[in-house]
Write a protein that binds this DNA or RNA. Structure first.
Lengths: 316, 316
DNA sequence: ACGTTCATGACAAAGATTGTCACTATTATC
DNA sequence: GATAATAGTGACAATCTTTGTCATGAACGT
């Protein structure tokens, strides 16, 4: 094998094993230890952050920086990656230690000139917007780690304006619309609940010995099944929508599959909804004003009327 | 310079210049053409997709794939990049030809084992959610290109349920909450307008000769200044909010800086709003129900009362 | 027909690489 | 304190690679 190829393979090998001895690698590559030492030194000069310690149990180590071996990206791919990472700048809090910024700089600097030109041209013309929120979520890393390592946390949570301590076992974290959420098992309520991370005022591993549940199979992709159990009996909903009503409902994501659209742009809402949510739906349909006409269930219409009455009274 | 180093530099050089001749590079690197040929062949064997053509105006070319030279990323950076790109999967339409997916695969495959393990552990525990929309936006690439190249487009736009043709000059595109928007100058209205990309049914470069404006200085970062001109006279708004009202308003981003929060969790909305938007605000406050109490302006209260009356009539 | 360009082969000189050996230094462990 | 494991350095000759030069061919546009 030529030296150049050996060096490239070596680069990947040392990144795979984090720790190794000269002898070990020398045998693996079929060269003498002297040569391997020379190769390692050359790698070091090429920018791989190697660190060595002598003595028994010593050896070589790659420091936390790791070389990403040469990857063939198409221009489109590189550009897409750039903007994906660029979008992270909208988040005031991230579960990764805000190092994504430096990653982007490195990525950008290593791009060839014309890709860089292309990115520059597009920089202010494409964006993945996420609303920037004022409140920060400082505990994302520990929440994430607890989810990965199946640990119980003791958190201080602001709920309805009051603080309270709870034991929770996170199953993950996700960002939505600029806010971070943490679905978790709540040992207080004995239920799965979603917590807003910016309302978590403190978080620490529970030392009290609350036994963690085995939630390895529960993750963001299938958490819905755990939440579904709490729903009450469902009631059939039916409402007519004007064209503008359809557009307004399109923005409301939780309606999901209940929305049906006709050829002419108008549409209707139809489907089962949990009875416990009636108050919520009442408020929603009141907000739609004339663009929606609720036909069923009658309870919902009553609920809406009550709301009108209260509001009328308030503003008279 | 040693051969290994030369090869690495050569890798970057051929990526910078897309097209080059052997002689040219040989001179640049101070070696004979024979050596350069041998180097290029070796590069080819190492995976750089080189392609050559003989004859005058021939020469070497790098195919669209380009090698990203080795970059030193920290583990955190690599993970952050992964999840950033991973988040793009929520978009049913992208201005890049959906190649981001393959980029992610390559990236993932080239990671060293333990980073890959770390990603695997976190894969279902972290997410940047974007609501998936049913309607696609197939014209993103041409909108983006028109923005970059300062071209006028002729589009077919669905507005209030009806289709209509318009000449527009895009200043960029952005995704928000799963939908793509295109702020652009509209030659029909002689104003800057924001278009929803999934309502653009067709888009093509204008052949009619509408002269493009010089909008090079206008981009996503400063477009607000162009839109501001159309606002009507502004009216002072003031509304009291209960604790729950505050939380509901936090979700409404366009309120922005108008929202003020008290120690106890309740709060108030205060600030100038464009008079033309009164109908919109009326509907919004009706939707907040008892959690908000509008104090000013009286026009808004009137507007809300009218809305109540209409709705009462409808459901009686 | 000519010039440009890639492509390949041969070969000897120059240069880089390699293995071996001898030696030093550090440090954990017994 | 001895021992073994480990990195690190220097020297040197054998060997292998790399390099430049030259010759030759093939494709292709002008």
């Amino acid at each position: 094998m030529s030296k150049s190829k050996r060096l490239l393979e070596l680069m990947m090998t040392v990144n795979r094993k984090r720790k190794f001895t000269v002898k070990e690698l020398a045998q693996e590559f079929g060269v003498s230890t002297r040569t391997m030492l020379r190769d390692l030194q050359e790698l070091s000069e090429l920018g791989v952050p190697l660190y060595s310690e002598v003595g028994p149990h010593g050896g070589y180590q790659v420091l936390k920086e790791r070389i990403l071996p040469p990857i063939a990206f198409t221009e489109e791919e590189a550009v897409a990656m750039f903007f994906a990472v660029h979008a992270l700048r909208h988040y005031s809090s991230l579960p990764f230690e805000s190092e994504s910024v430096s990653a982007l700089e490195k990525f950008y600097l290593h791009m060839s000139g014309d890709v860089r030109d292309r990115i520059d041209q597009m920089k202010n013309r494409v964006d993945f917007v996420t609303p920037t929120r004022q409140r920060e979520s400082p505990h994302l890393p520990i929440l994430l780690e607890a989810a990965v390592r199946q640990k119980v946390l003791l958190i201080e949570y602001e709920s309805k304006g009051e603080g309270a301590c709870r034991h929770i076992q996170p199953i993950g974290i996700y960002a939505n619309n600029g806010l971070w959420f943490c679905p978790a098992y709540c040992f207080l309520r004995r239920q799965f609940r979603v917590f807003r991370c910016d309302r978590i005022h403190s978080a620490a591993y529970d030392e009290g010995g609350t036994a963690p549940l085995d939630l390895r199979h529960v993750h963001l992709g299938n958490k819905e099944s755990c939440f579904r159990t709490e729903e009450g009996p469902s009631i059939r909903l039916y409402a007519e929508l004007s064209r503008q009503g359809v557009q307004m409902c399109e923005a409301a994501l939780w309606l999901g599959s209940h929305l049906h659209i006709r050829e002419d742009g108008s549409g209707w809402l139809e489907g089962p909804v949990p009875g416990s949510d009636l108050a919520f739906y009442a408020r929603f349909f009141v907000g739609l004003g004339n663009e929606a006409t609720v036909k069923e269930p009658p309870e919902l219409i009553d609920s809406m009327k009550r709301l009108f009455a209260e509001l009328m009274a308030k503003y008279e």
